[in-house]
Amino acid sequence: MSTIIEVQGVSKSYGGVKANTDISLTVPEGGITGLIGPNGSGKTTLFNSIVGYHPIDGGSIQFQGKEISKLLVPDIARLGLLRTFQQTRIYGAMNCVENMLISTPHRKLRFIESFRRNSKEEHERAEHLLDFVGLYEKRYLRSGSLSFGQQKLLEFAMALMNEPTVLLLDEPTAGINPTLINGLIDRLRRANTEFGITLFIIEHNMRVIMNMADTIYCLAHGEMLASGSPDEIQNDQRVIDAYLGAH
């Protein structure tokens, strides 16, 4: 598998707080890569650095061999590198279908085309994906009136609508009830296999991430602590110490 995201020696600090120190990792194309670590270990900061949310202090981030660390958020999104938010973000005053329709890939949309209506294919795709995440019946409801878990599913469907090459998911199962989680794992897997989307996932739920990921990276105190297969990570004493607070 070839590398699609390559992070090399990335550092980011907020004033005196070193959120990321010299982080290097690679995300292989077509796989599922996990990123774990205790609260405040710098996972979301690293995600934000990758998608261009803030400038990094040093290091390099490459996407499909192209340096992206100087690009802005919308530019990176249009390259096909998309993220979802830890605090779910959707367009609350619009209904689910409208949320989906505005999430069509903007790298393909010429500005003049924004003065046209959505095509029939786009409507069908939106409804199909809403069905895929189980929100079909609620598609004409105001998305802001949905429960947190449903909004999370909607945000995931919106990301799929955007046809990304890589999807960065920030805690996709947080706040979702245990029975729904199994369904979500299944859908994430299918997004990976059926739609061919490379996934890079931050997750606190060990059962979820150990089940899904091919490779897992573990951060602690803003530094790379360990990396390897789920088995290796589970049996790594440093990881166990970090989570139990021995660090």
Partner: peptide, 11 residues
């Protein structure tokens, strides 16, 4: 509704 989200979606 959410300008930051719109940016993150490539608008």
């Amino acid at each position: 509704d959410d300008e930051e989200k719109a940016e993150a979606m490539g608008l």
